[in-house]
Structure formats: structure tokens, C-alpha cells
């Protein structure tokens, strides 16, 4: 099967609509297709990776722990747009730690999250074959 570069662009807050949750479902299913997968979080999408989410009062499912499983699905390229974080008064420390084990480096645990500027993200977008926007 051909390998393409897939980028999933997450733009919306995690719990006001279902986009974030259903986007994550696509990413997990897509892992079985062994494509080159990257995730980008921009605009309110950066809230999807916040630590300590609690949806108890909303009565909706808190799916945020699932992001921590991405490393096990070989999803290790997670780009968060710096400007989106800054505009919301957030920094990398506010995000869940997401890691993967690098098979080319004796399974060393490495950080999956890369905070990138919008121009760096533009370059990353430019390199993709398939971009799915959620």
C-alpha cells in the first residue's frame, strides 16, 4: 500500500462540539493503515491537549486521556501552534505530556509535542499529501 503523509488539523475546542472527539477516532483508526501521520493543533484546538480536563459537569465523555495512547499508535508528530497557545495565555506546561518510544533509539521515551510557530506550521502543511481539517 502506498504511504502518504496525512495531517490532521484540529481547530476546535474539545468539549463544545464533537469534532475533537471524532477527529481522534479517525486518527486511531487510521493508524492501522500505516501511513505517515502528523497532528496539528491550532486556534481553540490547542485546548484539546490541556491537562486535567474534567467533563463531569457537562455529562459528556472525557476522551482526553486517549491522547496519551497516541504514542502506542506510532503517532509521534504532534505540532501545537505557538501563537494559538500565547493568544490563550497558555504554554507547553499547560498541556498533557505526550510521549512515544523511539524504536530507532533503544525505545527511549521522547516528547511527541512540538510547539511550532505559524510559519513553521505552514511549512509542515506544505509537505503533506492529505490534510483533514476538523
Amino acid at each position: 500500500m502506498a504511504t502518504k503523509k496525512f495531517l490532521y488539523v484540529n481547530r476546535k475546542a474539545p468539549h463544545g462540539s464533537i469534532y475533537a472527539q471524532e477527529s481522534l477516532e479517525v486518527v486511531l483508526i487510521a493508524a492501522a493503515f500505516e501511513q505517515d501521520v502528523s497532528l496539528a493543533f491550532v486556534d481553540d484546538g490547542v485546548y484539546q491537549l490541556l491537562q486535567n480536563q474534567d467533563t463531569g459537569a457537562l455529562g459528556s465523555k472525557n476522551f482526553s486521556p486517549t491522547y496519551k495512547a497516541l504514542g502506542d499508535y506510532d503517532v509521534s508528530k504532534i505540532y501545537v501552534e505557538q501563537e494559538s497557545l500565547e493568544m490563550r495565555g497558555l504554554g507547553k506546561d499547560d498541556l498533557m505530556p505526550l510521549v512515544y518510544e523511539d524504536e530507532d533509539d533503544d525505545w527511549a521515551e521522547k516528547d511527541s509535542i512540538h510547539v511550532v510557530s505559524s510559519s513553521e506550521l505552514a511549512d509542515i502543511i506544505e509537505q503533506q499529501d492529505v490534510i483533514l481539517n476538523f
Partner: peptide, 17 residues
């Protein structure tokens, strides 16, 4: 299933959302 979406992305020259 969602696999059909990924498969479309692989097969198509352009995927339009």
C-alpha cells in the same frame, strides 16, 4: 468504517474537505 476515509485519501490525487 472510517477506514474508507483513509483509503480515499490514499487513492485520490486530492482529498477535499
Amino acid at each position: 468504517g472510517l477506514g474508507q476515509l483513509i483509503d480515499a485519501g490514499i487513492q485520490a490525487d486530492r482529498t477535499v474537505v
